[in-house]
Design a protein around this nucleic acid. Structure first.
Lengths: 64, 64
DNA sequence: TATTAATGCAATATATATATTGCATAATGT
DNA sequence: ACATTATGCAATATATATATTGCATTAATA
């Protein structure tokens, strides 16, 4: 399933997928695919995304 | 770095690495290596571990 | 309308998470 | 002392996360 919380947090910081990706040091596709729910990021990548967006794991990646 | 919070939560439920691994459907080594901080689990695996131990991502995998 | 930015998609390549097996050792119980 | 359980470690194999490139499309903007 899509990760809309991630997308919302990114948009709230006014970052494009590419800007977020550059900030973290991954490719734009990686961010795009995570938002689309098409794969399964590593914990370290999740943590990097959280730090970049000033959120916690539960904020962005906890489901239900 | 070691994941002592994971180990503590597992021990608190009186589960061996092997029992936890079986419950989740991964190998014992995978659990052992995560506890030792020797690799970087996927988000889905983290979520499975959390559900098995009745914890959240922040409880077990958030650092500092 | 033309241009640019943002995003999705697809193919191939590479790095690495995870499985599997087997062995060593420490801890625990008999 | 012996047996058993839990854990760590190492090697090889496989699956998959991630990179890279390029193209298509949508949305925004001049």
């Amino acid at each position: 399933m899509k990760n809309l919380k991630l997308k919302a947090a990114r948009v709230e910081k006014n970052l494009s997928q590419q800007e977020l990706a550059e900030q973290i040091g991954v490719s734009r596709q990686t961010i795009g695919l995570i938002e689309l729910g098409k794969y399964n990021p590593s914990l370290q990548l999740c943590l990097s995304i959280c730090r970049a967006l000033s959120k916690t794991l539960d904020d962005l990646f906890w489901e239900e």
